[in-house]
């Protein structure tokens, strides 16, 4: 059964539950295995041949615990979507993967996160090469107030990836091509990146991220500030990029999650509630909370 067909079925399902107004637990009781109070992870959070592994990750902001015992793998060449209501910790979890949370003084992370078998929170790990390997695209497009060229070339420059100008030009062009922006900007590389449209800016940020040849790309709601057309372009781009990179994407749009991802993780108030194939999560969720969320009961 393909994902599109499942999605159709799902939308029909939502309508059904809404019109029936008797609640999903009754309507689809046969499938729901875990009730609302259960906080154990349902489904299969682990994959063979994982690129990144997370084991029993807890994150605290001061006294407040934002992430509770989350274990999750990110496989090779897959797009994993993280969904959940606002404040559920999915962005926090994403930011742990390349230690962006280090910039927050009160933030404390326990548990183990590895990249290719190496503990990223290890004593002798330098965050600079880590972030070169695990790139990040943010919610709001944030190009540097510099030229388009300099935006993309900045990463390769600071990491010394290019020996000379020709190589740098090459990296910039390749990255912009991969980000699907080359044709639009090739004649105005010296103009400020901030002058592009929102969707172009976000693709510029993606180009900037892939210019340093990362292995994993983290995307924190990359389309939330974009219109549907720009969103569609970026979703196509994510599909292309997964040939080469592992991608973890946080999104508020369940349609987006179902379109771009192979696996989906559902977070709820700091707990990882359910992980599984995207098609399965959206058609036959096994946890009551997942069911509530994807049918639009909250979030």
């Amino acid at each position: 059964m393909d994902a599109a067909a499942n999605f159709e079925e799902l939308t029909v399902g939502i309508e059904n539950t809404q019109t029936a107004s008797t609640g999903p637990a009754k309507a689809k009781s046969g499938r729901i295995l875990f009730d609302r109070d259960s906080r154990d992870t349902v489904g299969e959070p682990f994959v063979e041949d994982a690129r990144m592994t997370c084991r029993d990750v807890n994150v605290y902001y001061g006294d407040k615990q934002a992430i509770k015992d989350v274990s999750l793998d990110i496989g090779r060449n897959e797009v994993i979507a993280m969904i959940g209501p606002s404040g559920c910790g999915k962005s926090t979890f994403l930011r742990c993967l390349n230690r962006m949370n280090d910039t927050i003084d009160t933030c404390r992370v326990t548990g183990q996160i590895t990249l290719d078998g190496i503990d990223v929170y290890g004593k002798d790990i330098d965050v600079v090469p880590l972030r070169a390997q695990v790139g990040m695209v943010f919610q709001k497009p944030n190009p540097f107030p510099k030229s388009i060229y300099d935006n993309v070339a900045y990463g390769p420059r600071i990491h010394g990836l290019a020996q000379n100008r020709a190589e740098l030009d090459d990296i910039v062009e390749t990255s912009l091509r991969k980000a699907g922006l080359w044709e639009e900007v090739k004649d105005r590389m010296d103009q400020p990146g901030t002058g592009l449209s929102g969707g172009q800016q976000q693709r510029l940020c993606i180009a900037r991220t892939i210019a340093v040849s990362p292995e994993v790309i983290l995307m924190d709601e990359p389309c939330s500030a974009l219109d549907p057309i720009a969103t569609a372009i970026i979703e196509d781009l994510i599909d292309e990029l997964k040939q080469q990179y592992s991608i973890a994407i946080v999104t508020h749009s369940m349609q987006q999650a179902s379109r771009v991802s192979q696996r989906t993780a559902y977070f709820h108030l700091g707990d990882l509630i359910e992980v599984g194939d995207t098609a399965q999560i959206f058609t036959t969720p096994r946890h009551q909370l997942t069911q509530d969320y994807i049918t639009g009961r909250f979030g």
């Binding site: 390349n98 600079v128 090469p129 880590l130 790139g135 990040m136 943010f138 944030n142 991220t209 340093v212």
Partner: peptide, 8 residues
Amino acid sequence: EAALGIGA
């Protein structure tokens, strides 16, 4: 964040 995110 943009600068830190690409490994500056």
